[in-house]
Simulated scan of single mutants.
Amino acid sequence: MTHAFRLVGQTVMLGLAEIREIYTWRSWTFGWLARLLCQASFFALIGRYVGDTDTMRFVLIGNIVALACLESTIVVISLAGERRTGTLALLAVAPGSHLPLYLGRGLHWVVTGLTSTLVAWLTLPPLLGVPLPWPEAALALPLIVLIAVTSYGYGCLLGALALRLLGFEWLILNVGYGIVLTFCGVNVTLSTWPEPLRWFLAFLPVTHGLQAIRTVLAAGPAADIFHQAGLELLVGIGWFALAALLTERLVGAGRRNATLEFND
């Protein structure tokens, strides 16, 4: 177990080193972060246009929280890159388990996602004239961390699909995130959707966590908050388990059939 945690830690350091190669602090701040802030503001302003201030606040909160999901699911691209560059094949023949390295490969996106979300959480509501209640807004922060982690498990499952469908990783990422953004209570209430669809949405990340955050901000019952947070945690565990199972099946088949080839 200690060895696995050490491997995950080294994988995170590798990911952060990649981030430093991709971005400077200027390009990240004025490029990527600015893009995310504009995205959340855009949807919030649409909410104000079609509704009122309460609608704008509802949409803004949902889209700020969704930023943590967006960045966490970028793990799809990192995992597909492991097969494209041939390193997945090397992990598959290594004497130890490949799962700690594989499932930890995109954890740096959780770190950057939480950073982006925190900046948006602190700046956008007062900037757009819909400030959040304090200290309730601070109490909601652990729930945002939980959503980022469960979304990462969801992203790992999508990443396993991308390993099977190499070349479609961007489509898989955008469709996977788009489903969450559209249906999981980010822009419209869950009651908007028919009952069969709501049953399916209960198994997606963000759905329960975002409800818990809205309850915290409304100073709602603690029992409801812990109930929704517990469901979000169970959803995340489920996605991690499915991701590990699907990856094991893919790698096992690759070992038998020699199909974990380089794909430059």
Rank of each mutant, 00 (worst) to 15 (best):
S78N: 13
L91C: 05
T11Q: 15
W121F: 08
Y23C: 01
V111T: 02
P142R: 03
F226I: 11
G9I: 03
V188H: 08
G155I: 05
L88F: 08
T85I: 09
R214D: 01
L107K: 04
V93C: 07
R164Q: 09
G236D: 04
L143E: 00
L157W: 12
V111K: 06
M1N: 02
H208G: 07
R35N: 11
R255E: 02
L171F: 13
Q211V: 10
A120E: 13
F200G: 12
V111C: 07
G155K: 12
W28F: 15
G96W: 07
C184W: 07
W32Q: 14
E136V: 01
R6N: 12
L127W: 14
T73V: 09
I22G: 06
H227R: 15
S72V: 01
A241M: 03
L197G: 02
T189R: 15
V206T: 10
L233I: 11
C38N: 05
E82S: 15
G31R: 05
G209W: 01
N187Q: 13
L171H: 13
Y154F: 15
T189M: 11
F43R: 02
P205G: 12
G47Y: 02
Y154H: 13
A222D: 02
P135R: 01
F5S: 12
A66C: 06
G81H: 00
N174E: 04
R35S: 15
G104A: 08
S97Q: 08
